[in-house]
Structure formats: C-alpha cells, structure tokens
C-alpha cells in the first residue's frame, strides 16, 4: 500500500467518526441527518478512492470508482426523501430553530 491511500483511508475514517458522533449528539432528526449522511458518505467515498488508488485500473479499481457516484446519488436522494418524509410525518423541529418557511406549503 502506498502512502496516499493510507492517508485517504485515515481521513475517511475520521470523517465517519465525526458523522457518528453527530448522530449521537445533535438534538433532532433533521440535524442528525445533516451531520450523519454527508460526513459518513464523504468518508466512505474517500475509502473507496483509496481502494482505486491501490489497485489501479483493474476490475476492483474500476468498480470502486463507479461505486463512488452510485453512493453519492443513493445517499443524496435518500437523505432528501427521509427529511421530507419526516416533515410530513409530523416530527417536531428542535427548540433552537429560528425560521421555518416550509410550514405554509405543508398545510
């Protein structure tokens, strides 16, 4: 393993860790989705990129490379539909919320 892929793996795991800490610490579901989905997705993408750098243009490397956009789109669409569903489900926003302009559309 070369140095760049080791660094990418460590950075990715650090981002995963931040995402999971956010999943435990933040007050409501909307903020948890903010930290968790995106930090964790970016971290995992970084690990897959390290896999591509390690194996080069072989079958594993190319598959890891096309797994990155797949993961990107899957997790963005998933986060969007979860946050919309949670709002329609009737979950309360946290007390710290300053503005909510979606309320008028929901009714």
């Amino acid at each position: 393993m070369n140095n760049i892929s080791v660094i990418l793996i460590i950075v990715g795991i650090a981002f995963d860790l931040f995402g999971c800490i956010g999943l435990l610490r933040l007050p409501d579901l909307y903020n948890r989705l903010q930290s968790a989905t995106k930090c964790v997705t970016l971290g995992t993408c970084s690990i897959l990129l390290a896999l591509f750098l390690h194996y080069g243009f072989t079958s594993v490397g190319v598959k890891a490379l096309i797994a990155i956009p797949l993961l990107f789109f899957a997790s963005t669409v998933g986060a969007h539909i979860l946050i919309r569903g949670a709002y329609k489900y009737g979950l309360k926003l946290t007390d710290k919320t300053v503005v909510d302009e979606y309320k008028e559309v929901d009714q």
């Binding site: 995963d16 999971c20 579901l29 989705l33 989905t37 964790v40 995992t44 890891a64 993961l71 979950l91």
Partner: peptide, 21 residues
C-alpha cells in the same frame, strides 16, 4: 421515534460499504 431508528440503520448501511472496502 421510529424515524430516528431507521436513519441510524441507513447510516449503518453506508458504514458497511466502508467495512467491505
């Protein structure tokens, strides 16, 4: 609530991809 639990499961699914790698 149920939604919180499912979000956690969703995040776990992404972590499994990293574990596979």
């Amino acid at each position: 609530t149920m939604a919180d639990r499912m979000v956690a499961i969703d995040i776990f699914g992404i972590l499994v991809v990293g574990i596979c790698a």
